[in-house]
Design a binder for these strands. Structure first.
Lengths: 135, 135
DNA sequence: ATGGCACCTGTAGCAACTACAGGATCAAGA
DNA sequence: TCTTGATCCTGTAGTTGCTACAGGTGCCAT
């Protein structure tokens, strides 16, 4: 159960070496111990934490979200209701983004359908893009 | 019908002055004429083009997409089939992003629902985040 | 002609990484 | 033990799509 080098950690978690060092620099990942020569030595805790960070980022949590959860004491010590709050907030954002995309999808699909392959000004896509947005 | 200053163009289109200059620098917006003193002077063409760029960006077209359409001769000269191709490509990306979000939404919603408000390790959100991704 | 706003260029900053460059350390074989 | 080659170190610069200065001019109305 010796420590892991940064390369080993990278292989275990699928996170780039540079990104690991970056996470440490910005305070997302706890700084590990060092060898005499200054090489980082990671523990299984780091594997857990880094995997957690990675997963949360993949699910679209912002680095700020991740930090918020981690600051609650990290996985293993956080209060469920606080974590839930963050997740609910994220869920709201996801739903609103979905609505945006749905509207866009309909617009794009119906527009593309009307394309003739001819010249402008017969192109519905261009026409659509020239409408001022009614956001 | 005198030309517009960059500030007037910004007000007309709702695009920041710095962003207009940026678009010029990266070749999205045609460089306008200048006064003796070096101030940019824009035409109605520029208003049209900039509005087009803005709208396309709002709809999620990447700058590369916009450039591609613009390079086809700009709105008013492009071939419909080529524009359509770009739009269809964009539509595909939108749909795939929607699917991702839908999956995520279900996961988040069902997880959050099971939250008790108690301490970890009873927090389903944390548990979910600790699962390795099966992407 | 002069005040004050708008404009100019150029550079630096943001997020969230990624990618070097140049040098030190580690581990393993000879 | 020595050497070699992979790995690691720090620090800086690049990426994308802007945004925000700093410091210097131009424009125009009074």
């Amino acid at each position: 159960m010796a420590g892991l080098s940064i390369g080993a950690l990278a292989r275990r978690t699928g996170v780039h070496i540079e990104t690991i060092r970056y996470f440490e620099k910005v305070g997302l990942l706890e700084a590990p111990g060092r060898t005499e020569g200054g090489h980082r030595v990671y523990t299984e805790q780091h594997v857990r934490a880094l995997s957690f960070i990675k997963r949360a980022r993949e699910l679209g949590f912002t680095p700020a979200d991740v930090r918020a959860i981690l600051n609650l004491g990290g996985p293993g010590r956080a209060y469920c209701d606080e974590v839930q709050e963050i997740a609910v907030h994220h869920l709201k954002q996801v739903r609103s983004k979905m609505l945006d995309l749905e509207r866009l999808e309909r617009l794009l699909a119906s527009t593309v359908e009307r394309c003739s392959g001819g010249h402008v000004p017969d192109c519905p896509v261009i026409e659509m893009l020239e409408q001022p947005s009614r956001k």
